[in-house]
Design a protein around this nucleic acid. Structure first.
Lengths: 214, 214
DNA sequence: CCCTTTGCCGTACACTGTATTGGTGGATAC
DNA sequence: GTATCCACCAATACAGTGTACGGCAAAGGG
């Protein structure tokens, strides 16, 4: 069975899911596919283009969300699907917003969000739409990125407990004990462990309220 | 004159400003400082820690903003300073949100924003504060990231005009001519070239309006 | 039968971060 | 004065990266 861009992207996604973007190399993908490393360059211009293919493959899954009748429900569905995809493929959050989303599926979800937003009564002209899209996408990119890094550090402080207790933990408590960061300290100490999905939902509606309310 | 973490970070920042993060290597930093590459490891654990140092050095500049009497003005000042810093050091946006901000100056900035937000009447308990901080930081990270990538692609389509006219341009017009992305097409064609700073300001107040519940 | 051309394949290059080894100067002990 | 040790620094070495490029075999044309 011959190679193809799709098959290469799929193999790359499998590896990136397992080892992260840093663990992803042309040679490993080729080995996974049982071919020589340079074969990949018959289908892909360079590694950057391969990353774009991976991103668009994920966007394809995001684009599968059902279209909702109400514009707000549509935006919520797309945003939640994007978050879900980023949690399933953490490397996705590293690439999200790092290059323009120009793949066909990325354009499709962009179209769906833009169309939904333009149905909001608060979005009047095309300038409003451009700004609203910027605000929403900005929040989406940043929020997802934050959540993924948080999850990563939580995992690594659990795994690499030695390093945490040896350096980072004491450093942090020392810092907070200086009294120079009282609010942060309060957040760390008293802050309940809020449910991540609930927080995301809450903040998303906050941003949407800002868009429609102003 | 002896080496120091600060001096190493400063040299690394100079190089990253010029060549981007991809062009940054231990060997180049060492050459810039006139020492052997392995000397740097007497001051820095590994490259990741060096990147953290660079990030915190930028946060030091951000933390210099004058404290405003009104909480909203404080948040605006910090956000604009962060954006300004990311435009001055584009690599900063690549690192922003990619790892927890735990350096002393990053903590200072976090403290200032958290303190300001907690003075908003709409932020009642510590849970509200945690969420508001998440919404604001999420937007900030994503918006800055978006703007920097936009600027980069604009620059590279200007520089590498051959590649644009050969592949990406035609690809995009072909895509938009399929009629599958009418809203996006309208945005690309009719969309005025909005001032980036104005857009950022507008969206920032939009998010803040959402937080305060206006 | 020979020549050309076309596609396939692996080698090779320049570069990365960093562990490790070897050497060298200066201070201290006898 | 000599020997020993130690701190410091330089260079080398290794395992890996993305990808340019040269060689080779098969196919087609005269």
């Amino acid at each position: 069975m011959p190679l193809s861009r799709e098959k290469i992207a799929a193999a790359a996604i499998r590896l990136a899911d397992a080892d992260g973007l840093d663990g992803l190399s042309i040679r490993k993908i080729a080995k996974e596919l049982g071919v020589g490393p340079m074969r990949l360059y018959d289908y892909v211009l360079n590694k950057a283009e391969l990353l774009d293919l991976m991103v668009d493959a994920v966007y394809a899954r995001i684009a599968e969300v059902d279209k909702q009748p109400e514009w707000r429900a549509t935006v919520l569905a797309i945003a939640h699907a994007t978050r879900r995809a980023a949690l399933d493929h953490e490397w996705f959050s590293d690439l999200l917003g790092a290059r323009p989303h120009l793949g066909p599926h990325a354009l499709a979800v962009g179209e769906a969000t833009a169309a939904a937003l333009s149905r909001s009564p608060a979005v009047r002209g095309i300038d409003d739409l451009q700004r609203a899209l910027g605000a929403l996408n900005g929040f989406l990119i940043g929020a997802v990125r934050r959540e993924v890094t948080e999850r990563r550090t939580a995992r690594s402080t659990g795994t690499d407990e030695a390093a945490w207790q040896a350096s980072l933990g004491p450093y942090l408590t020392r810092m907070l004990n200086t009294g120079r960061y009282p609010t942060i300290a309060r957040l760390v100490i008293d802050g309940a462990h809020l449910d991540a999905e609930e927080t995301f939902s809450h903040n998303l509606t906050t941003v949407l309220d800002g868009i429609t309310g102003a």
